[in-house]
């Protein structure tokens, strides 16, 4: 396997595991680099970073939130909104490693060939956002945060695992046997929120159709395959908001038909 075929995959794993390690070290050895968890963190003990979706649910549930967390949410929204797009999902979120593992195993076991198709709308995640906010308003709890496999896995690494680990196994099995990319590509409302936040971000994948040999390897690995609708047809950037900028399509492309572009706006 060539380095150029796994470059972004390895980089992503380094970032994901590195962040988990920093969170763990913050609690275990008291390193003051990254404290807290993905819901809300302190960078170098000064810079707050908070999950905007968690803050939204807190407002829906009737909370009055202190400025530190609000600033943190603005910071996160700006980082992804201006630069990264939906990069949280593929570069930061630890559940991505679970669902990627399920997707890999799915390909290796040829499950797509034997399974009966279960269809779920890819827009379900946006409904999940609305439902999460409604449930938060009704119950006075942050509805998604109490079941979020993302923070359960994240907190598990930092503070120790509990029965919530079962939920992650369930998601793995769901992605493996029920719906391809079921969790990250269909259901997860946080992914929906990050899709919306990242709509106008600078970073995106660019397709050069002149170089494309229509091998379709990119479509095989893409977790949001609908965003690659221009492959082999038009030279343009991947503009659908569900693209997680994971770079896996760039990795597998041997024809230099896919690349990251940071001048999204200029090309438009």
């Amino acid at each position: 396997m060539k380095w150029s075929n796994i470059k972004y995959l390895i980089l992503r794993r380094v970032v994901q595991l590195g962040l988990l390690f920093l969170y763990f070290a913050g609690n275990y050895w008291g390193w003051n680099i990254l404290r807290g968890d993905l819901s809300s963190s302190m960078l170098f003990g000064k810079m707050p970073l908070s999950d905007p979706f968690a803050i939204l649910q807190m407002f829906a549930a009737g909370a009055s939130v202190a400025t530190t967390a609000l600033l943190g949410a603005v910071a996160i929204a700006l980082i992804y909104g201006v630069i990264g797009g939906r990069a949280f999902c593929s570069w930061v979120c630890p559940v991505n490693m679970v669902t990627d593992a399920a997707a890999l195993l799915r390909r290796k076991l040829y499950i797509d060939k034997i399974e009966r198709k279960v269809w779920i709308s890819r827009n379900l995640r946006y409904y999940m956002i609305i439902i999460a906010l409604i449930v938060s308003a009704i119950t006075g709890l942050t509805a998604f945060e109490i079941i979020s496999p993302i923070t359960i896995l994240n907190r598990g690494v930092i503070f120790g695992f509990g029965a919530g680990l079962g939920l992650l196994v369930a998601i793995f099995l769901f992605d493996l046997f029920v719906v391809k990319n079921g969790w990250c590509g269909h259901i997860c409302p946080l992914g929906g929120v990050h899709s919306i936040i990242g709509k106008f971000a600078l970073l995106s994948v660019n397709h050069t159709s002149e170089n494309c040999t229509l091998c379709m390897k990119c479509k095989e690995v893409c977790p949001e395959v609908q965003v690659l609708n221009m492959i082999g047809k038009r030279s343009e950037i991947v503009s659908k908001i569900e693209c997680t900028n994971c770079g896996r399509c760039i990795d597998v492309c041997n024809d230099d038909a896919l690349n990251f572009s940071i001048l999204n706006l200029a090309k438009k």
């Binding site: 609690n27 807290g36 968890d37 819901s39 908070s50 909370a63 009055s64 907190r155």
Partner: peptide
């Protein structure tokens, strides 16, 4: 408390 806690664990740390 239930609607204001963001579950970040900074207090525990």
């Amino acid at each position: 408390f239930l609607n204001t806690c963001i579950k970040c664990g900074l207090c525990s740390e």
